[in-house]
Each structure stands twice: as structure tokens, then as C-alpha cells.
Nucleic acid binder design. Sequence first.
DNA 1: AATGAATGAGAGTTCATTCAT
DNA 2: TATGAATGAACTCTCATTCAT
Lengths: 203, 203, 203, 203
Amino acid sequence: MDKPLKKPSRIQIRNRKVILEAALEVFSRYGFRGATLDQIAEQAAMSKPNILYYFEGKEAIHDALLTRLLETWLDPLREMDAQGDPKSEILGYVRRKLDMSRDFPRESRLFANEILQGAPRMMPVLEGELKALVDEKVAVIRGWIAAGKMAEMDPYHLIFSIWALTQHYADFDSQIRAVLGHDGAIAEAEPFMEALFTRLLAR
Amino acid sequence: MDKPLKKPSRIQIRNRKVILEAALEVFSRYGFRGATLDQIAEQAAMSKPNILYYFEGKEAIHDALLTRLLETWLDPLREMDAQGDPKSEILGYVRRKLDMSRDFPRESRLFANEILQGAPRMMPVLEGELKALVDEKVAVIRGWIAAGKMAEMDPYHLIFSIWALTQHYADFDSQIRAVLGHDGAIAEAEPFMEALFTRLLAR
Amino acid sequence: MDKPLKKPSRIQIRNRKVILEAALEVFSRYGFRGATLDQIAEQAAMSKPNILYYFEGKEAIHDALLTRLLETWLDPLREMDAQGDPKSEILGYVRRKLDMSRDFPRESRLFANEILQGAPRMMPVLEGELKALVDEKVAVIRGWIAAGKMAEMDPYHLIFSIWALTQHYADFDSQIRAVLGHDGAIAEAEPFMEALFTRLLAR
Amino acid sequence: MDKPLKKPSRIQIRNRKVILEAALEVFSRYGFRGATLDQIAEQAAMSKPNILYYFEGKEAIHDALLTRLLETWLDPLREMDAQGDPKSEILGYVRRKLDMSRDFPRESRLFANEILQGAPRMMPVLEGELKALVDEKVAVIRGWIAAGKMAEMDPYHLIFSIWALTQHYADFDSQIRAVLGHDGAIAEAEPFMEALFTRLLAR
DNA sequence: AATGAATGAGAGTTCATTCAT
DNA sequence: TATGAATGAACTCTCATTCAT
């Protein structure tokens, strides 16, 4: 006897959203194993059994978060246009990633936690969808290089460097704030990034 | 009334080392709360109570790891010499950090886990020792810039970019291997890093 | 941020009562450290985690018992009336204490255990509330003595002797039964006590 | 193969004494189950295994203490002489018991702990040796009463009252000190006891 | 005679999940 | 749809005892 799978009511939709929001807060800080349903329930202002009414279990909530994350996580890279100008395309990508670190730092940390732990749940996506996308964009960049439109370099590590530099501001936020002694690091980082990539790409 | 603190025997030294090695493996993957003494005991091939014979508790093991880590973690930055040539000093720093990511990836992930969780145990060190060291080196870099020896830029973010770029290869190792389809990313990264920072620093 | 502290349900009230009853049985026999949650759980016919659903921990149960005990433990002494006749007031106190030893022997043993161990949890109450009450009643007795209404004696040790003689029948119950070879020692003790204190107080 | 049972060396004798002294300290405070070998070892300034070299186990130490205690515990009562004068015999007994509470309070508390827990280890002694001794002395007292040498009363409860009054000063010491605000309660108690029993026994 | 090292059993407690309503 | 009540499994840690020297 399978679940009925009726169309979710308005209340269902809202509560699933509330739970995911709370779970994001908790999972992004403590990782999957370190987070507890109690914390999520408290954050969501719901009872624990009620949370399990909306999701099969702790893992299902985490999976839902990762799935939801993946829907948008790769968008900034997807938008990189082979027909566009290399410098503006790549700088645009950097900017979009920095925006994500500013607007969705918890999502970035959720992702970082998953990767740090060896990507037990996301490895298939990394080896499949992500690798395919990266391979495609690497080909694009190789084309730009071959056409003499940008400096020669290893496109894989160019992409890695964009990931590293931008996500760092979300993932290592607490360290950065401790060192700087103030907030707003990302705003300061933007011109630095622009200079860095401008110089890196210049022929 | 403190513990007697007798000189540790050879067995004590060896077993404490074995435990720390096992704990590093486990904590670096799952974070403090996600790791269990069972996992550490299994990894160390010891009984759980025997582990607690050598360390006061789970937290004490973790603390010992962090303390040990801090002894060397800042060394690469400390070595940056104000009297040296900016380019070779900074490239040297990058190289040393890349070496650490290659040789001590678990230490890097242990650190990343701590920071991701908001640095509950290391915040005082970040705000104290680390901030002081960074401030000092920022002054050095400002001196180089003022002397016209390197391009103008925000020295804080220069340092952050080095941390981000080098540690990424340890912390996001599983993602990098999935995308590349092969090992040895750090070896490939070295020339990329050299080019990147050479271009960034050039006047 | 305190707990919400909702009004306890009927089940909560009943189960907390069941647990305290079971805990009294166990703590009064083995003392705080000697008692185990397993014993309490068995006695209460509940699972261990369910007990911890109603109380924060082992210590909280013990504290609740001591607190509940204190609410009534000092009542017999409080009732001693300065306006009354010394002999009937003091004999009345003795009778009330004997009644307590008959009706609440486990409470008496719980108290004895706490005192035997140096009153680690109740010392403040002993030095505060209890001392104040005793001091007050000592003044009353001194008044009676000064008024020539009873024999001269140290009122503190008069009170101690009442405590000792009455609580002994609860605390050393197993010894008394072993020596007598039968139950009902307290009933036998009553006339003995009456004679003892009558002769002691007489001018 | 039985133990050799050689004659104990001087060092054995001394160490067994040290251990028993330490164990008395610990058992008298925390009871059998509440006490730990670690505490005893610390108190004895010996290693735990060394303690178990001299005694079969925790229970054996406790048994040895109880056995040693019994050798002298009943002496004060035994000394009560049928040929003597009732008043001086009984007052003498009271005095000897008070002396024991002053000089051996830990032994008294050890005994109290055992009885409080239902005398799991000493019940046979209570029902055997102790009951026999008490029965014998009860007969003596009955003789005195029959001979008109002292007031009529239940001799069992007379003996219980002596136990209760005298041991109270050792067992409830912490409470007494809290109420009095000073030490030396037993010295104060002596004249009180003398008056009490003098009046009680008088024809 | 003595002790550092080691462990199985069990302690108090947490937690994801289920039950009952 | 919601939640108090309940629990088995697992977690950290303690303790009496044993092992090895």
C-alpha cells in the first residue's frame, strides 16, 4: 500500500518550507550527524513528531535540502555563455557566486559540510551532472584560449579557483569576521576579485 | 590540587599518538559532534575505555588535536619575511600552504570543520593570535605596496585569497577528484597558482 | 530563556508521582550514589528514557524528593506552641515524630542518608531554615524553664534527643526487628517515650 | 589449589591497616555502593591493583571493616554487669557508647549505613549474636526491675534508646554542627544524658 | 610487592523514531 | 494535522577487576 500522494495542501507547503528553513539553519552549522531533530524542531517552532509527519526522517529532510540546493547551485556556472566575451562572462560568474555567498551563506556551508565529509550523499551528482557541466564549460574556455581571447591556463583550476575564492567568504565567515574585526567582507572582496580575475585573464 | 603529571612512558607516548591519529581521521570527516568514540576506538584498534584512560574525554582529544594543529598551522604565514622580495615571499607562502594541503589534508579539514561551525573552540585564538599575526603581515604588505614593489590591493583579501585557494584543495578534495576524474590536483594547481599570483602582484 | 512550563497533564502528574514513589524506595535504601536509574525504572515499571522524559536527570529526582520532604519534615516542630503547656507540647511533638517514623519511614531514611553523607545537598537548609526554627523553639523552652514550668536542661540537646529517639525507629528498623523478633516496635515505644519524657521534664 | 596462607609479613600487616583506614573513611561517607575503589586508593595513597593484591575485592574490604567493627561494637553492652548497681551500670554503658561516638564516628556511620540499607551483610549477626546479647541483658534488667532496683520499663526500648541517643551524635554530626553552630556537642551531651537516664531509672 | 595498561559490564543521558490520541 | 508520551539504540563515561611486567 503506497502513500496516497495527494496534492499537498497550502498548509503542507508552508510547513515543509518552515521545516526546511529551520533544518538549513541547523544542518549548515553542525553537519548531518551533529544536527538533531530537537534543534530543528525548536528552530521551526514545531513538535518533533509533527516534523516527522512532513518528512520521513532526519535523512529525508537533509536530502530535500541538498536536492533543493542543487536546483540553483549550478545555475551561475550554467549561465556562462560560450558566445559571450570571456572576461565579462567569467567576471559575471564570479560576481554571481559572490552574490550567492552573500545571500545564501547557509546553503554554501551545507554544501561544504557535505563535501568535507566525502560527499556521501552527493557523490553521484558530483561525478554526473556537475562533472558534465564543468567539462562542458572547460571546453568553452579552451575555445576562448584557442581563439586567443584570454590567457592560457588550465580551465579546471580556473573554475576551482572561482569556487574557492567565492565560497570561502561564506564558509569561513566566522574566521574572516574575527580577523577583520568587522562585517561586510564580501563587499570589500568584490573589487579585489575583479582586479584578480582581470589580471589573470588578460593576454 | 593538580594531577601528578608524571613523565609519560613509551607506551603512553605511542598510544596517545595512535589515538590522535585515529581521532584526526574521524573528527576531520564528521566534525566534533558527528564523530563518536566508537569510531575513534575502532580506528585506533583500542577499546573505548582504554582511550579514556589516555584522554579525559572526547572533548580533550579534540582539544589536543586543535592545539597540536595550531602549533604549525600559522607557521607558513609567520615565515613571510618583510625584508624579502614581495613576489617570492608571497609565492613562497602560497607554495607552503599548498604543501600543507597536500601533506596534511585532514588537519585542514579539521580546521575547516571548526570554522564552519562558528569556531566555538577556536574563536579566542582567531581573534587573538591569528588576528595579530595577520595584522602584522598586512602592515608588511602595505609597506611593499607603498614602496611600489607590488600592485595596489587590499592586503587582507590577498591573504584570504591565499587561504581560500590553497585550502580548497584539501577541504573540497572529494569534489575535485570527482570533477577531474583523477588524483594529483595539487601538482596541477601549482603552476596555475604561480601564474595567478605573479599576474596579480605585478605592477 | 526558561522552559515554557505548561500546566502538567493528568498523565504527567500521575507519572511524576509514580517515579517519585519508586525513587523514594530506592534512594532511601541505597543513598544517592548507590541508587541507579535502572532500579528506579524497574520499581516504577517504566523505561529509563521515559523517566528522563519527566525529570531532567537522576539528581533532579533526588532534589524533588528532598524538596518535597522538607515541606513537611519540620512541621511537627513548628507546631510546638509557646502558649501551651510544656509537657503536653513536648510530648505532642514526640508523638508526631513517632507517627512520622511509623507512616513515613522511607522519608526518614532518605533524610538520614543525606545527613550521613555530610548533607552535601541540604547543608544550606540545615544552617538556614532548620537552625532558625530550632533557635526559636530553644528560646521557647528556655522561657518555660525560666518560668519554672519544667526541669532545667539544655534545650538543644532536648530537641536532639527527640530526633534521635524517634527517627531511630525508622532508620534502624531492620536492626530493631532483628533484635525484637517481631514488628510493631513503634507501638511499644510510645508508652516508653511518654514515661521517659514525663520523668525528664518533671520539676 | 588453595591460597598458601602464609603468615603475613610486617608490610602486609601495615598495608592492610592503611587500606582499611582509607576504606573506613570512604565507606562511612558514601555507603557500600556509593564508594569507589578509586576513592579508597587515593585515600590510601596506593594504586588500585595494589589494593586488590591485599584484598579480594571491594566487598572483601567492606566485609573486613564490618568484621573488625563487630569485634568491639558490642563490647560496651557486654560490659554491663548483672552484679553491679543498675544506675551506674546503665550510665556507664551510656558513657562508653558516647565515648565511641566521639572517638569512632566513622565506625558508627559505617554501621548506620549498613543498617539503613536493610543490613544485607550483617543481618545474620543481628539476628544471632546481637539478639542473643540483647536478650541476655534484657533479662538482667528485668531482674533489676523485679528486685525493685530501678523503675519499671520495657528493657528492649531502654537499650534502643541508648543506641539512638548516643549514636545520633556520630551519625547526624553534620546536622548537629549546623544547628549548634559549633563543635563539641558530645561534651555538652554528657550531662544531659546523665540527667535523662538518672530520672528515667529512678524508682 | 607494586603498578601501568587494559577491559567488560554497566551507569546516566541523548536521540531518532513510533505510539496513541 | 498535531502533539504528549514512550522507547530501543547508541553515546559518553565510570568502575571493579584483570593482565603483564
